[in-house]
Nucleic acid binder design. Structure first.
Length: 859
DNA sequence: CGGGCTTCTATTTTT
DNA sequence: TAGAAGCCCG
């Protein structure tokens, strides 16, 4: 099932309604000040401070959405603005939907008049459609998905004769996306950065990509905002029009905004002085800069952009912008979010009122204390202290297990116990760092017959069958949509392979016509082999027929006809694979969902922005998801497995982002803990299988950062994890070692040695009797070792590494040039360069890598 | 052109 | 380990 945010309603609302006094009056009469009554003083202040810039720092569970919606209700009921004069942006469709829903509950049906409540992209897209010609587009432009984007770039790479193995199109797509996130048009990309791709051709490729987009009448997600910014800058009159229209601006999740979104908001909110964030350079250049600790964004005061100055004679307008966010929940730095936007707010909007919401209505005392304590280890934060008036509740538990399988078994049992107590599975969630962790839980739940659902994963519109179906419709709607045409011309198989496509391309390029027209022309010649020619002719004829049919058939029926006549449905009906039935079901759902739109055009315009993942989750089931996708959700019981160094915090983040990365990981931990209302249960395993091979891990440094008073440590009986008594004989790992598998590699041995050193116990002293052990997995010693013991166990070099990474200062390395070293992942090598605690090492097998010194040891 | 084989690589994700 | 992507041959 897919849901969408009634886009037909959005489009059907006129921009300027005749005085909406009716709605305001209705709101005033029916709601009165009642909507303010349940608010605490801070929330109330956040709602009632309507004039001037406001930053609401809303910690987890402090009633953020409530404040936002009540604020809108307040604005309306005070008659300060009409619904169409409030710009209210969120990141996800889900959040937008939620706000609409809550508003609807408060105001009755007045929400339908909120045309400017939506995601950054849907609103940006909407504005862009109004002024498409200023971006060399037509108002019916297509929004490309990532697939299309990559395919287009691949073509450009081929045209430039660039080896797309060495310089993958995906990578370029990522770069371009990053530039767009930072508000950079092709001409503005720093030349050094543009040069990193394909020996200096990066910038040029970005430029030609943009050109191609215009020709295809297409925009990618980044363009939806970037083109807005450009239009606003180049056409002050248009900008002013929007500035005047939006009397109030509200922004949700401000900590997740990227530079482009920030600029967009700045323009619309008409602020007088202008801060140009000089955006962080690429990771490499930053670490090269030596002190990796300088803030990632420098503030550069620039004179106000002319557009931002008040019109002559006009008094500077008040900027009624209200941003709500939580710097401690910023977890999307890796995809361009700039925490600095929120950290800089007071600077950007002088005279801003900052309101902290610190009263948490979600979690019990122990959970909140644990989460607060953990996040207090971060340096770059605005600082909030969450408090609750709830009881202390149960302590957060930390449990160690021998390996990830045991972890999954233990959690499975714990869940069954909770279930036996009569609690709902819907109130149980497992939050993992990386999605590959999910598998083990799924396996376990299947054996146990425990209902579960995975949240996240591939979205509805990312599925191949949906994209294919959409591609057919796109070609019907706009014959010039080459990317769509190319996608389905040979799906189902029609014997039109690469060679045919290539020749169509040549033809199209020579005559500067779309592929579809090229196909029509080529069919008339004898350039193709008879077989291909015949099929291609059929395809062209089919599309002609469908386009004609469009005039007389409803778009829903047309879609059904297309899917049937093209043989697409049949293709999946014949498919023997397990998911074929599901795909057919999805196609049906797609057709069904089209009914909500007025016509094909409207459907295609909104579908890419608004389509959501399947949402029909009515059954009682355990939720399984990543920490990232858990943001914004809450559960009575939260399981947090995999708190091990390397996995959480993620090694890769540490390697690539240093201290900033560590802090983001810590925020992720904070997000995880604060999802729990009543019980939070953390797990770590001593051994984990990663990419098919077992490796030994040590507990996450974050465990050390939890406050002892609020945490209870339990270990699996028989010492199957850290610090246990052991003595049950050889573990299966020891057995495997005997078979000469990878467990006898230096890495494994080093890990064992590490473990011994850290744990102060004999290595490999594990019980072989897993089954009996896990039976008492959860009820084992509740009076485990005192908390300090975690630290004492972690006296190995990796702990020190934690500190070094955390501080990331230019500490002099204990290594010298040419030292022979060993790295757990890359093997042996020698030091070729030293830069503070960062070493460049030429590894025998893995080649040259940059590594923080504490990740290696002398060999 | 398409099927089967080998090779490679391996967070987090929205729009 | 496992999935995807590329490669070669019929």
């Amino acid at each position: 099932m897919i849901r969408m945010t009634e886009p037909s309603k959005i489009t059907s609302v006129p921009d300027h309604q005749p005085a909406a006094g009716g709605i305001a009056a209705r709101a005033r009469a029916s709601v009165g000040p009642k909507y303010l009554s349940g608010l605490n003083p801070e929330q109330r202040e956040a709602v009632e401070t309507l004039d001037g810039p406001v930053l609401v720092l809303a910690g987890a569970g402090t009633g953020k959405t409530r404040v936002l919606t009540t604020r809108i209700a307040h604005i309306l009921s005070q008659g300060r603005a009409r619904p169409a004069e409030i710009l209210s942006v969120t990141f996800t469709n889900k959040a937008a939907r939620e706000m609409k829903h809550r508003l609807g509950q408060m105001l009755g049906h007045a929400v339908e008049g909120m045309p400017w409540l939506g995601t950054f992209h849907s609103i940006g897209g909407r504005i862009l459609r109004f002024h498409a010609e200023l971006a060399q587009l037509k108002s019916n432009f297509t929004v490309l998905d990532v697939d299309d984007q990559v395919r287009l770039l691949k073509q450009l790479l081929q045209a430039e004769n660039i080896d797309d193995k060495r310089w993958p199109a995906r990578m370029l797509a990522g770069l371009i996306d990053g530039w767009k996130n930072r508000g950079l048009m092709p001409s503005q990309v720093p030349s050094g950065e543009a040069a990193v791709f394909a020996n200096g051709k990066g910038g040029k490729l970005y430029a030609s990509y943009q050109e191609r987009l215009k020709i295809l009448n297409a925009a990618d997600f980044g363009d939806l905002l970037l083109e807005n910014i450009r239009i606003f800058r180049e056409h002050p009159d248009i900008l002013r029009q929007y500035q005047q229209r939006f009397k109030f601006i509200l922004v949700d999740e401000y900590q997740d905004t990227n530079v482009a979104q920030y600029l967009w908001l700045r323009l619309l909110s008409q602020a007088p002085s202008f801060t140009s964030p000089r955006v962080r350079g690429e990771v490499a250049s930053r670490s090269d800069a030596g002190e990796g600790d300088s803030p990632s964004t420098e503030l550069v005061e620039t004179p106000p952009h002319p557009d931002l100055l008040p019109a002559s004679g006009e008094k500077e307008k008040t900027k009624n912008i209200c941003c709500v966010g939580d710097d401690d929940q910023s977890i999307y730095g890796w995809r361009g979010a700039e925490v600095d936007n929120i950290l800089r707010f007071e600077h950007d909007f002088p005279g801003a009122k900052v309101i902290r919401l610190e009263r948490n209505y979600r979690s019990t005392g122990h959970i909140l204390a644990a989460a607060s304590h953990l996040i207090a280890h971060n340096e770059g934060r605005l600082g909030k202290t969450l408090r609750t008036e709830d009881q202390d509740g149960e302590k957060v538990t930390v449990k160690g297990s021998w390996d990830s399988e045991e972890e999954a078994r233990g959690i499975g049992e714990e869940i069954e116990q909770i279930q036996r107590k009569g609690e709902k599975l819907n109130e149980i969630a497992i939050l993992v760092r990386a999605s590959y962790q999910m598998r083990e839980f799924e396996d376990r739940f299947v054996t146990l017959g425990l209902p579960y659902r995975v949240i996240g994963g591939p979205r509805f519109y990312e599925r191949a069958e949906i994209r294919d179906a959409l591609a057919y419709l796109r070609v019907i709607n706009s014959p010039a949509d080459d990317l769509a045409f190319e996608r389905i011309v040979n799906v189902p198989k029609r014997g039109l392979g690469d060679a045919t496509i290539q020749m169509l391309h040549d033809h199209a390029r020579k005559r500067r016509i779309p592929l579809f027209e090229a196909a029509r022309a080529v069919v008339e010649t004898d350039e193709l082999k008879p077989k291909a020619r015949g099929s291609l002719r059929d395809v062209v004829a089919q599309f002609d027929r469908w386009r004609a049919q469009r005039e007389v058939t409803s778009h829903t029926e047309l879609a059904q006809i297309v899917l049937d006549e093209s043989g697409y449905t049949e293709m999946w009906q014949k498919d023997r694979s397990a998911d074929a039935a599901g795909r057919l079901e999805n196609l049906k759902e797609l057709v069904r969902s089209m009914e909500e739109f007025e016509n094909l055009q409207g459907f295609l315009e909104h579908i890419s922005l608004v389509m959501d993942r399947e949402g029909g989750a009515e059954d009682d089931a355990v939720s399984l998801m990543t920490l990232h996708s858990a943001k914004g959700l809450e559960f009575d019981n939260v399981f947090l497995p995999g708190w091990e160094e390397g996995l959480f915090p993620s090694q890769r983040t540490l390697d690539e982002q240093g201290r900033a990365g560590l802090e983001e990981e810590r925020r992720l931990g904070h997000v995880g803990l604060t999802r729990a209302r009543r019980r939070a249960m953390i797990y770590f395993a001593t051994n984990r299988r990663i990419h098919g091979t077992w490796s030994t891990t040590i507990p996450s440094r974050f465990l050390d950062e939890l406050p002892a008073a609020n945490v209870e440590i339990t270990e699996s009986k028989g010492g199957s994890a850290w610090g246990g008594a052991g003595g049950y004989g050889a573990s299966r790992f020891d057995d495997m070692e005997a078979f000469g598998s990878s467990y006898s590699t230096p890495g494994w041995q080093r890990a064992q040695a590490n473990r011994n050193r850290g744990g102060g116990r004999t290595g490999g002293s594990q019980s072989g009797g897993f089954e009996e052990e896990t039976a008492s997995f959860s009820s084992a010693s509740s009076s485990g070792p005192d908390f300090g013991s975690f630290s004492s166990r972690r006296r190995g070099p990796l702990t020190i590494e934690g500190e070094l990474v955390a501080k990331s200062t230019g500490t002099t390395s204990e290594f010298s040039l040419e030292d022979r070293v060993f790295h757990q992942k890359f093997g042996y090598g020698h030091v070729t360069k030293i830069d503070g605690n960062k070493l460049t090492i030429a590894f025998d097998k893995a080649g040259e890598k940059k590594v923080v010194d504490s990740f290696v040891q002398r060999a």
